[in-house]
């Protein structure tokens, strides 16, 4: 029997809220799916759409982008800028055919350790249900094939 598919999920989080929330989940000994790889950034405003493309390029099956709730940004409005960017980038990805189900966005504050743990679990199950992102993996494999002479 083939092994159970374990999705690779990359989470881009801001250090002041979601990372602290994840930290709280850890110190509260909450268990959550080990499928997520966290990348800590100073602010959601620092999360460039290129990071998402890079994660996909490296074979991610799902992506989470998360930061402080509106109004809570450490830099006062980084997340407002980020929100506009996501809005546009999300519809762009959708139009290109990269399913919106694979790229998730959330607001998680430093106090929401439980929300963080639960969200990671739900997302992992959702992406697991979707299966590996074979269409994109196909593009990656193509880059590794030997040149035909």
């Amino acid at each position: 029997m083939s092994e159970k598919f374990e999705p690779k999920i990359v989470a881009f989080v801001c250090t002041y809220c979601t990372y602290a929330g994840a930290d709280l989940a850890g110190t509260s000994r909450l268990k959550y799916a080990p499928n997520v790889r966290m990348v800590r950034l100073p602010c959601t405003g620092r999360i460039s759409p290129m990071f998402i493309l890079k994660a996909l390029q490296k074979g991610a099956d799902g992506i989470l982008i998360s930061g402080c709730h509106p109004g809570d940004c450490h830099f006062t409005h980084g997340n407002y800028h980020a929100r506009r960017r996501w809005m546009v980038f999300r519809s762009l990805l959708d139009f290109i055919g990269i399913p919106t189900d694979r790229v998730k966005y959330s607001w998680i504050s430093a106090a929401e350790g439980v929300k963080f743990a639960e969200l990671i679990n739900t997302i992992t199950e959702e992406i697991r249900a979707l299966g590996p992102f074979t269409q994109y993996h196909g593009l990656i494999e193509e880059t590794q094939s030997q040149a035909s002479l």
């Binding site: 460039s48 759409p49 290129m50 990071f51 493309l53 890079k54 390029q57 546009v88 980038f89 762009l92 990805l93 290109i96 593009l139 990656i140 193509e142 880059t143």
Partner: peptide, 21 residues
């Protein structure tokens, strides 16, 4: 290097997505 500079389909996806964005 965020974007693949090679003209393979993956690199082309990345280029066209970023330019559109």
């Amino acid at each position: 290097q965020w974007i693949n500079t090679s003209a393979h389909t993956l690199g082309n996806f990345e280029w066209n997505i970023i330019r559109a964005f």
